Computed example of a mutant assay.
Amino acid sequence: MAKPVTTKGGMMRILLGSGAGPIVYAAPCGLTSKSLTISKGLEEVSIPDCDDPTAMEWLGRDAVSLSMSVSGEGVLAQASVEAWLDAVESADPVPVKVELEFPTTTWTWTGAMHVESAELGAASNTGRVTGNFSLQSDGEMVRTSAATS
Rank of each mutant, 00 (worst) to 15 (best):
V5R: 11
V5N: 09
V5S: 14
T7E: 09
K8D: 14
K8Q: 15
G9A: 10
G10M: 01
M11A: 10
M12E: 02
R13E: 15
R13T: 10
L15Q: 14
L15C: 10
L15V: 09
L16I: 15
L16A: 06
L16C: 08
G17R: 04
G17Q: 05
S18Y: 04
G19F: 00
G19R: 14
A20I: 11
A20L: 13
A20P: 00
G21Q: 11
G21Y: 11
P22A: 12
P22H: 00
P22S: 08
I23F: 03
I23V: 15
V24C: 02
V24A: 15
Y25G: 07
A26W: 01
A26C: 02
A26Q: 10
A27Q: 15
G30Y: 02
G30A: 00
L31K: 05
L31I: 12
T32D: 10
T32Q: 09
S33K: 09
S33V: 07
S33Q: 15
K34V: 15
K34E: 05
L36K: 07
L36P: 03
T37W: 00
I38D: 01
I38G: 08
S39Y: 01
K40D: 09
K40L: 12
G41A: 11
G41H: 13
G41V: 08
L42W: 08
L42R: 11
L42N: 08
L42V: 13
L42F: 07
E43C: 03
S46C: 00
I47D: 13
I47K: 12
P48Q: 06
D49P: 10
D49T: 07
D49I: 05
C50Y: 06
C50G: 03
C50S: 03
D51P: 01
D51K: 10
D51A: 14
D51G: 05
D51E: 04
D52V: 13
D52Y: 14
D52W: 04
P53Q: 00
P53G: 08
P53H: 06
P53L: 04
T54F: 08
A55G: 03
A55V: 03
A55N: 10
M56I: 09
E57L: 10
E57S: 11
W58P: 04
W58M: 15
L59Y: 03
G60P: 12
R61K: 14
D62C: 04
D62G: 08
A63D: 12
A63E: 12
A63T: 15
A63I: 06
V64K: 11
V64E: 06
S65W: 00
L66A: 12
L66M: 13
S67G: 13
S67I: 01
M68W: 07
M68Y: 02
V70Q: 05
V70K: 06
V70D: 03
S71C: 02
S71K: 07
S71Q: 11
E73K: 12
G74I: 02
V75A: 06
V75D: 15
L76Y: 11
A77H: 08
A79C: 13
A79H: 09
S80K: 02
S80C: 07
S80D: 02
S80H: 01
S80E: 05
S80I: 02
V81L: 10
E82S: 11
